[in-house]
């Protein structure tokens, strides 16, 4: 009797676990099924490297969106990575553990704020600031980079904090005992030991930034063009899909799925890089 119960629970759990995995797999299959024929027909080259995006006339070149996505992501890293790493160092090395116990969960709470709220703040606060102080339309690469840079902070900080926290204390003691100052022991030993974990955190943050959609649509301006400065309005890959999916049909719809494939590949590459870095740090 008890055995039967055990078995039912076990199988039920397995079913649930596999359904999660299966839905992931199905999503991937679906995207590829819808987008791949289009990709093959148009040719990778024309799709990725042409700047001509006029769906009504049958021109599908996503080069401007790729460039914009990379710009925005790179900008977000410039904002988020130094801030996040500095914050992780500070929390680990320069404040009492009790402060860390309060601060870290608070920062992780940032991850729970809906992205539309970040976008809202971008539109209301950051964009006008940029418009009045630096010129341009305000909704721009810079605005998106600042907002995304803040959005990825929880990811970068919590993974970096864990990486730095797992550096054995004996390294710090050894450095201090050789006459190093606190900061010398941190940047000459601790950061080197935690390097791969920190890199993993930054890469995962990058994955979040490149995949973020709502906030970017709200603050990046969305014009399809290759940006010439950080103050230009741009449209990212994610924004392109979200903005046009509602009314796209036929080839246009397939082109958006193909855009999804490109995004999928980008994020897969970033995640495997992060995993490789993490593995290295465990060793």
């Amino acid at each position: 009797m008890r055995n039967t119960g055990e078995r039912i629970v076990q199988n039920a759990l397995m079913l649930v676990a596999f359904s999660a995995l299966a839905s992931l797999l199905l999503i991937a299959v679906f995207i590829f099924k819808e987008g791949l024929p289009f990709l093959l027909r148009t040719g990778l080259r024309d799709f990725l490297l042409s700047s001509d995006w006029r769906p009504q006339e049958g021109h599908f070149g996503i080069y401007p969106m790729i460039v914009s996505s990379l710009w925005v992501t790179f900008g977000a890293m410039l904002v988020g990575a130094p801030l996040g790493i500095a914050c992780a160092i500070f929390l680990n090395e320069f404040v009492p553990k009790s402060v860390m116990r309060v601060t870290k969960p608070t920062i992780e709470l940032l991850a729970g704020i809906p992205s539309v709220v970040y976008g809202f703040i971008g539109v209301i606060v950051v964009a006008p600031l940029i418009r009045s102080h630096l010129g341009g339309p305000g909704l721009s690469v810079l605005c998106a980079a600042v907002i995304l840079g803040i959005m990825i902070l929880p990811t970068v900080i919590s993974i970096s904090v864990d990486a730095i926290g797992s550096v054995p204390n004996s390294y710090r003691e050894g450095a201090l005992a050789l006459g190093a100052t606190r900061w010398q022991s941190v940047h000459m030993v601790v950061l080197k030991a935690a390097r791969s974990g920190i890199v993993a955190g930054v890469i995962l943050g990058m994955g979040r930034a490149i995949g973020e959609t709502m906030a970017v649509i709200m603050v990046a301006g969305n014009s399809v063009k290759i940006p010439h400065s950080a103050l230009d309005s741009v449209r990212t890959l994610t924004a392109n899909i979200a903005l046009e999916m509602g009314y796209a049909t036929g080839q246009h719809r397939q082109a958006l799925f193909a855009t999804g494939i490109v995004l999928f590949v980008f994020i897969m590459i970033l995640n495997s890089l992060a995993m490789a870095a993490m593995k290295k740090s465990v060793k």
């Binding site: 054995p168 004996s170 390294y171 003691e173 005992a177 050789l178 010398q184 080197k192």
Partner: peptide, 29 residues
């Protein structure tokens, strides 16, 4: 003071750096 009074710990704790960088650590500091 800690340069004048050095310490060897219970468990060997070389830094995860090259041998050269370990030996020269105190000097570089």
């Amino acid at each position: 003071l800690r340069k004048k009074v050095g310490m060897v710990f219970q468990r060997p704790n070389p830094f995860p750096l090259s041998i050269r960088d370990n030996v020269t650590f105190g000097l570089r500091v």
